[in-house]
Computed example of a mutant assay.
Amino acid sequence: MFTGLIETVGTIAETVAIPRGRRLRVHAPALLDDLRRGDSVAVDGICLTVTACTADGFVVDVVAATLERTTAGEWAVGRRVNLERALTLQRRLGGHLVQGHVDGVGQARAVVPDGDALWLDVEIPAQVARVTVPQGSIALNGVSLTVQRLRDTWVRVALVPHTRRVTNLGVLKPGDRVNVEADIVGKYVARLLEPYTTRDPGSVPGY
């Protein structure tokens, strides 16, 4: 579990094909003080397990299903990725509960300057839009953001100077793809209501 508050931005240092996946070496010296083999790290919003620690970062394996469902299949050496270690009970929950289970890939549609901030419009998967609400939360590349506007299958979020400085969202341009995770609360509510919203007229819940 994560908070969506990015700790540092790392760099893909190496990518190697393995059976049914890829092995990535990530340059992330800022995380070395408290990182162990077996730890979970959100890499651009994808929860991955550290398989080895290196002198300047760590190694993770990405399975084929994750490569297909996220932007990880597009990552090349030199790509900058948002990084966050798993939440501990001693840390403040400053963002929102982020699982690191990406629901789909969105696409930046517009980046609009507004003073020191930017408005970012993103086309999101329909299944994510269905459980998203205005003023609710959404994670883009692992970053916890507030939904400022929701229309059909696109959302608008604000990128304040701090977010632009400490994440990779500040360099997004129209057409760029991002990992999207819906708020876990919305997903559970939708699941709980499913028997009542999809059942045949006259049927009894639970039968």
Rank of each mutant, 00 (worst) to 15 (best):
I6L: 11
E7Q: 14
V9R: 08
T11R: 14
T11E: 12
I12P: 06
I12Y: 00
T15Q: 14
I18D: 03
I18L: 04
R20T: 14
G21M: 02
R22F: 04
R22T: 10
L24F: 15
R25H: 04
V26C: 04
A28C: 08
P29I: 03
D34I: 07
L35M: 08
D39A: 15
V41K: 12
V41D: 10
V41Y: 03
V43I: 12
D44Y: 01
D44G: 05
G45Q: 03
G45Y: 06
G45P: 06
I46K: 00
I46S: 14
C47K: 05
C47W: 08
L48D: 03
T49Y: 04
V50E: 02
T51L: 03
C53I: 15
C53H: 11
T54I: 01
T54R: 06
G57N: 03
G57Y: 00
G57D: 02
F58I: 01
F58S: 04
V60I: 11
V60K: 03
V60T: 05
D61A: 06
D61M: 11
V62Q: 09
A64G: 08
A65S: 11
T66H: 10
L67Q: 01
E68R: 15
E68G: 13
A72E: 07
G73Y: 00
G78R: 10
R79D: 09
N82R: 03
E84G: 01
R85T: 01
R85F: 12
R85P: 10
A86I: 00
A86K: 00
L87I: 03
T88C: 07
T88K: 14
Q90W: 07
R91A: 15
R91T: 14
R91E: 14
R92L: 15
L93Q: 08
L93P: 09
L93W: 04
G95Q: 05
H96F: 05
H96L: 04
H96A: 05
L97Y: 13
H101Y: 03
V102W: 06
V102Y: 07
D103L: 06
D103P: 07
D103R: 01
D103K: 08
R109G: 08
V111I: 15
V112W: 06
P113Q: 04
D116Q: 15
A117I: 11
W119K: 09
Q127S: 12
Q127G: 07
V128H: 10
A129W: 06
V131I: 12
T132Y: 10
V133A: 15
